[in-house]
Every structure is written in C-alpha cells, then in structure tokens.
Design a protein around this nucleic acid. Structure first.
Lengths: 139, 139
DNA sequence: TATCAGTTGAGAATTCATATCAAGTGAAGG
DNA sequence: CCTTCACTTGATATGAATTCTCAACTGATA
C-alpha cells in the first residue's frame, strides 16, 4: 500500500504546464484548448481528470466565479482575493488579508477548521466602468 | 413605461416563502422540492425564473460554492462570509468583515469598482473534522 | 517477454440551467 | 358580464459543463 505510482504522462505534463503558465484563471474548456495546442488529440475526459487530480493534491485551486457556471482553475494556491468584473467576466488577483484575530475567534466560536479562504470582490474593471459611464451620458 | 405589473402569484409567493424560511443555502433544486410540498405541479422553469427575479431585484443572494456545481440561494443579502465544508458540502454563515482601509487602497491601486464581496472560508465542519480524525487513527 | 495496474480517448450519460411556446389567468375597460 | 391583453405558467426542447463507461494502450516489473 505504498504510493500508487502516479505516472507523469505527456498529457498530464501538458495540463500541469498550461495551468502553471496561465494567470488568467482559465476554465476547464480553455485549459483543454491550450493543452491541445501542445499535444494533439487529448481527450476532454483526460483534462478534466487531471485537473481534478491536481485540485485534490492541492497543486491547483478551483474557482467558482462569474456569471456563468464553468469552474476555473488557478495556479496560485495561496489564499487570496479575486476581482470579478460582472460585466466582462474577467478575473484578476488581488491581495486582501483577512484579520487573523477574527479568523481565530471564528474558529473558536464555530469549531470549523478553516483550511483556506477565497475572497471574491465583484464590481467593474476599469474598462467596463468607463464604458458604463459613456453609455450613461449618451442616454 | 411605468411599473410592468409584477404579479405575486401563488407560485412566486411559495418560492419567496421557501427561500425566506431556509437558512441552509438551498440549491435551486432544493427550493423546487420545497416549493412543490406547498403548491402541487410547479414547474422547474417557474422556480428558476422566480429565483432569477429575486436575485435581480436584490431580495436574494446567489452563491457559487461547494464541491459540485449547482447555485445556491441565500435569504441573507447582507455581505457576510460562508463557511464551506469541503467534506460534506454544508454551508454556514459567518461574519468576517474586510478591512475598509484595505478595500479603499485596493480600489485605488487597481481602479476596480467594488460593488460587493463574498468571503468563502473552506475547511471542515466540526462533525467532518471529527470523522477525519477517527479515520486517521483507525489506519 | 508476459503481466497488470495505471491511463487514455471516444462517446454516452448526467446534471444544471435556460429558451421556447401554447395555454392559462386576472385586472381593466367597455 | 364580457373582451382584451399583458403577464405567467408548465411541458418540453435545448444547451453547456462535467462525469461516467469501457475497450484499447502503455510501460514498469517480474
């Protein structure tokens, strides 16, 4: 019952690389596209399976964000915040620390073991906000 | 072009009531089940439509959380945090404020207009944490 | 070289959510 | 009281994302 011999196949290597090199929080579909640019004929199932493995082993973070459903993947596994533009759907990283004291207090009060957190700030990115203003004054 | 006369039908009333009385962040499917306990034969489309209306009018918050996909709905529309158990998927409320100063600084640095935020803390709820420990010592 | 657990890709199957559309409903005016 | 018409509804079709199934493939090991 030692380690179950996980193989680092070309497909897995490609998924790993694509995620590591992406800082735009790609969806599984986008990862699939990018993987296929490197290795021909990779199946969707393989990419989904590999992403699940990476998430399970803590090498990649899974993000649920934006107006629509698709999950997104983040190579930054440290707790951090995401700025989500509700107009264009773009997601960018941000750093907002939660107060450690408040977290400790929370843990004590709720007996919930906090492993990490994700702060999602939603609003408008600069370009979309500008566009909004333009539209508003045009009316 | 005055108010488009939104009718408060029995179906809508039921959805409204169900959400207002639920503090477990039900998914749309769960809302549908609960609504059907009150009003027979309600269609799924009606519940989805009504939930969308409620979200749009700001009476209900939409949550994207948990291991699986389905959206969840929250009758608590004030900015608050959610403790998400990564083992059982349970979601409970928590109160963790973001530092206003940090937010202001962020807005300035990124020119991102923040409309609101959602803090998701993930980890294990007390029962699941206990189960983990039990399993671990059993090995 | 035979074996076998681990992997893969195609396609089917699921799940969640939204779109379509004909039929139902009720308020307002005649 | 009856007609009209905008608003609703529910069945069903549709669509997107994800997972499942399974036969074929691969490579380390005996």
């Amino acid at each position: 019952m030692s380690s179950p011999a996980l193989r680092l196949t070309p497909q897995r290597r490609a998924v790993l690389d694509v995620v590591a090199e992406s800082d735009d929080h790609p969806t599984a579909g986008q990862v699939l596209d990018r993987v296929r640019e490197r290795v021909e004929g990779v199946g969707a199932a393989t990419v989904y399976r590999t992403l699940a493995l990476l998430v399970e082993s803590g090498q990649v973070a899974e993000l649920r964000v934006g107006e629509r459903q698709a999950l997104r993947y983040d190579q930054n596994i440290h707790s951090h915040a995401h700025l989500v533009c509700t107009a264009c759907g773009q997601v960018q990283d941000a750093y907002v620390q939660l107060d450690a004291g408040a977290l400790a207090e929370l843990t004590e009060k709720t007996s919930f073991t906090v492993a990490g957190y994700d702060v999602q700030l939603h609003g408008r990115c600069a370009p979309c906000a500008a566009q909004d203003n333009a539209k508003e004054s045009a009316q």
